[in-house]
């Protein structure tokens, strides 16, 4: 068991290493470099040389990769081009803001998704299922930039209940942020919740049709006891991985939603730095997002391992 955990963690680290290589190489092969982009029409002669010197671009690529990677390990991503300030100082508060937004969406989305999934499965093909399923399929198909815009139109403009866009500084504290994130959270969690609810539904239905559930019924186990002891533990286990994938996928949703709501998080930074061709920042963001992705999947894998008696004993035997 212990070795398996170590193995999974090592695999995660290898994945991240490869991701960092690819991002670095990707930036490297793009035509032009940070200095030509930054200096634009002045990109010749002494100015260019000076810029290369300052950014250290005149040393071989592998050396630059090593020093960059070494920096990343110490939470140092070098300097951004536009602001000429340290990237980690720019990133810090934005990462925090995005995490607040994502966690709020997850904390609200997952319980609702589980509840809806279980309800639709247990009342399969009856009124509760039909209503909820219709709504979830509907909200699954609308992309978040449309649902976000509609939310702004209805809640902020027509009803005037909540502000339409977020106007807090990047450094705002969590308590300042919270009232502003209600609409973005709804927009983000809509698709995610619908997705997960569908997964949970089909998983529960599958388990309900299994021989052991029929056996539990024939044993005389009361309905709700059967649901909680025999159905849910077996139905939710495979759902853990799906939840992890959905959360990872949510990162993309966060990017779009942040832009729509003008939220000072990572998402907006991604868009801004790409349009400014601020390559060091793009590089830093890529590695951060990849780490989150790998991390969430790792947690999900380990959780499945811990909770599944079958896998657990299998590993002990080895």
């Amino acid at each position: 068991m212990f070795f398996l955990v170590i193995k999974r963690i090592l695999l995660g680290l290898i994945t991240l290493f490869i991701v960092s290589l690819i991002t670095f190489a990707g930036v490297e092969v793009l035509p032009g470099d940070a200095c030509t982009t930054y200096l634009e029409r002045q990109a010749f002669g002494q100015a260019l040389e000076a810029c290369y010197d300052r950014l250290g671009l005149n040393v071989p690529a592998y050396e630059r990769y090593i020093s960059w990677a070494w920096g990343v390990l110490q939470w140092d991503f070098g300097y951004s081009l536009s602001g000429e300030m340290k990237i980690n100082e720019v990133l810090g508060p934005k990462v925090k803001n995005s995490l607040v937004l994502a966690s709020a969406s997850i904390l609200i989305g997952i319980p609702i998704a589980l509840l809806l999934g279980i309800i639709t499965a247990l009342w399969r093909d009856r009124l509760p299922d039909i209503i909820i399923s219709t709504v979830t399929i509907f909200s699954m198909t609308i992309p978040e930039f449309i649902s976000a815009t509609l939310l702004i139109l209805i809640v902020a403009i027509w009803l005037e209940w909540l502000p339409g866009i977020v106007i807090v500084p990047t450094e705002a504290s969590i308590s300042e942020l919270l009232p502003n994130i209600i609409l973005p959270v709804i927009a983000i969690s809509m698709i995610m919740t619908a997705h997960m609810a569908r997964m949970v539904r089909s998983s529960v239905i599958q388990v309900m049709a299994s021989d052991y559930v029929q056996m539990a019924i024939l044993k005389g186990v009361p309905y709700w006891k059967m649901v909680f002891r025999h159905v849910l533990p077996n139905a939710l286990l495979p759902a853990i991985n799906v939840v992890a994938l959905t959360i990872a996928w949510l990162l993309g949703g966060v990017v779009v939603t942040e832009v729509v709501f003008n939220y000072p998080g990572l998402g907006r930074l991604v868009i801004e730095s790409i349009s400014n061709r601020d390559l060091p920042v793009v590089q830093a963001l890529a590695i951060i997002l990849a780490s989150i992705y790998v991390g969430i999947n790792l947690i999900a894998d380990l959780a499945t391992l811990m909770l599944n008696p079958r896998l657990k004993s299998l590993q002990i035997k080895k």
């Binding site: 299994s210 021989d211 052991y212 029929q214 056996m215 024939l218 044993k219 002891r229 025999h230 533990p233």
Partner: peptide
């Protein structure tokens, strides 16, 4: 009335 199922392997709940 009690039942003994065909495939006991699939009729015992795996997590219990």
């Amino acid at each position: 009335i009690a039942m003994i199922p065909q495939n006991a392997g699939q009729s015992l709940t795996p997590n219990l």
